[in-house]
Write a protein that binds this DNA or RNA. Structure first.
Length: 257
DNA sequence: ATGCCTGGTAAAACCAGA
């Protein structure tokens, strides 16, 4: 079972790229972030024609998350992150597919930091940590994946000395990520590739992709039940080089049946 | 320190992204 995450940066603007990638790689489950489309503008027909059933939580202009499953119907568990009824952002959706609980998340960017946006990011992170603790306690196979907007270590940044004050790399945010992982989650990519330089995002600015000036901010966290089932992982980094591509590349893991 | 680029929305001296 191959599970992928992809911040598409506009599901309609990137539809040709998304469909080409689905056709070429046929992941079993896909978590999408940054749909940038209201609920009624999700390209359900095109996704269905590609062989996928989908649930999604849209929002006008920004955010928006979806879970796709090939030849299967994702059973929705929730479409908000608990802990703040006032939060209007569409940043979380969770479903069960083939007995695996899949949480698809789009953690706030948080820049500029410090400031209200950074405060919102830290609050959202606390809510995620609380929700993840419940999932861990439930003792079920869980994958928490998506755009975390955090580089966990200096290895995950092309030039760490320049990112120290950024909302994606500040100590508070790295510390929150560590608190989350320390509940017992496994960083799927790092488990299989502990030393490699691996990026999942390259800025549109300054030819970042050609210079490989990237960041690793899209992650897979696996509950202990899935540790022994993790057999492969990777980044489809070539997709970032396609015409009209997102600034993120798809990331995936493979679980043994 | 800022803009560099890009999409969405609306018509901008726009916003947000990371």
């Amino acid at each position: 079972m191959r599970i992928a995450t992809y911040n598409v940066n506009g599901v309609n603007g990137r539809l040709p790229v998304l469909l080409r990638w689905l056709e070429e790689t046929t992941p079993d489950v896909v978590c999408l972030q940054e749909l940038k489309a209201p609920q009624e503008k999700f390209p359900e027909k095109a996704i269905q024609d590609a062989g996928y059933h989908a649930i999604w939580h849209g929002q006008k202009s920004w955010n928006g998350v979806a879970i796709l499953a090939r030849n299967a119907q994702p059973e929705e568990v929730r479409r908000t992150l608990p802990g703040d009824d006032e939060d209007e952002h569409s940043r979380y959706i969770e479903a069960t597919i083939n007995g695996i609980r899949v949480g698809c998340l789009y953690l706030p960017n948080g820049n500029p930091a410090p400031g209200p946006k950074f405060d919102y990011k830290l609050r959202w992170f606390e809510r995620l940590i609380a929700h993840a603790a419940g999932l861990m306690k439930a003792d079920i196979p869980v994958v928490l994946t998506g755009d975390y907007n955090v580089m966990p270590t200096e290895k995950d940044v092309y030039k760490p000395e320049r990112w120290g004050d950024d909302a994606l790399f500040r100590p508070e945010v790295r510390s929150a990520f560590k608190t989350l992982v320390d509940q017992g989650w496994t960083d799927g990519i790092r488990k299989l590739y502990p030393e490699e330089t691996i990026y999942t995002f390259w800025d549109y600015f300054r030819n970042a992709y050609d210079r490989n000036a990237g960041l690793r901010i899209d992650h897979f966290l696996l509950s202990p039940q899935l540790d022994s089932r993790l057999v492969a992982a990777g980044v489809d980094r070539n997709v970032r080089g396609w015409e009209k591509s997102s600034d993120h590349a798809p990331v995936w893991i493979e679980l043994a049946d």
